[in-house]
């Protein structure tokens, strides 16, 4: 009795630091955004009018369309490639080589977002890129051709995958490690080859980790900001300043002084993220505690 109580108190102590930061930088700003989104700059209650206003804005639909294309490309690529690579690294490779590759995949993730965008600014400029031969072979002679509007979702997927996928490969590898060897052995005895064990044993058993990755990747993807913003500056304005919804919120707040409209855009993003997370949590049983 005493022991379990003491354990509980220590638990509170350990989460306290996180809770304080969560309240200060997560919950309070969200509450403030709620207040702003339902009022105007004179503090009067506006109901849903802010939402009606921003949804009717001429930049709203294109910004969400841009990010939708980006998200589809990014999520499909991320789910298939990270899980696929992790399965190969886990089962079909010598341990030493596998560890080296995991480390290499992870390295770009150690760069901060802005730094990785800078790397890609050079990589994608045919006049300075180490891969300029490849870019030219694909028909790109100048940087402005590479960042043509129709290529942008792909450019951002490249950057996101390069920085983000390595970390997830390591996580998926760890998840695969949790599967007891006896289960894989039993599958093998029952006649399952590598393909069948991956599809019917390994992947279903790590589906919660995959759902967790999908939730975070979706939320991160809808909030795309640094990459287009940096590219906008570096290309001297060749990108729409409100390319992504988060940039639209930024433009509304800081160029038009419309903090209320900006808050409405962020709440829409929050709701989208929550809906996706709720759906995935329900479908995958992510929060179900194992008996």
């Amino acid at each position: 009795m005493t022991r379990s109580l003491r354990g509980g108190q220590a638990g509170y102590f350990f989460v306290a630091g996180y809770v304080v930061l969560l309240v200060a930088f997560g919950i309070v700003p969200t509450a403030y955004a709620f207040y702003l989104a339902f009022t105007n700059d004179r503090g009067q209650f506006t109901g849903l009018n802010q939402f009606v206003k921003v949804i009717g804005d001429y930049r709203f639909a294109p910004a969400f369309a841009h990010v939708a294309v980006y998200l589809v490309l990014w999520l499909v690529l991320l789910l298939i490639l990270t899980v696929g690579i992790a399965v190969v690294l886990r089962g079909r490779m010598r341990p030493g080589l596998s560890a080296t590759l995991r480390f290499l995949y992870y390295v770009p993730g150690a760069l901060a977002g802005v730094a990785s965008v800078l790397v890609w600014l050079f990589m994608l400029d045919p006049s300075v890129s180490p891969a300029s031969g490849l870019l030219r072979a694909l028909g790109f002679d100048t940087f402005s051709q590479v960042i043509a509007p129709e290529n942008l979702p792909l450019v951002f997927v490249l950057i996101a995958f390069w920085t983000g996928a390595g970390g997830w490969i390591v996580v998926m590898y760890g998840a695969l490690n949790n599967i007891p060897d006896e289960i894989l052995e039993a599958a093998r005895i029952d006649g399952a080859g590598p393909w069948k064990s991956a599809l019917f044993v390994q992947i279903p058993m790590i589906s919660r980790w995959i759902a967790y990755m999908a939730i975070l990747a979706f939320a991160g993807g809808t909030q795309l900001f640094v990459e287009p913003q940096m590219l906008q500056t570096a290309s001297l304005g060749r990108l729409d300043p409100a390319w992504s919804p988060n940039q639209l919120a930024y433009v509304l707040a800081f160029r038009y002084g419309d903090f209320n409209g900006a808050a409405a855009v962020s709440l829409i993003l929050l709701v989208l993220g929550l809906l996706c997370a709720g759906l995935l949590v329900r479908r995958s049983g992510l929060f179900k505690v194992d008996a």
């Binding site: 105007n40 700059d41 004179r42 506006t46 109901g47 009018n49 206003k53 209320n260 409209g261």
Partner: peptide, 12 residues
Amino acid sequence: AALAGCASADST
């Protein structure tokens, strides 16, 4: 009812 009494969303 709440919406009907709402103020405009336009900035001053």
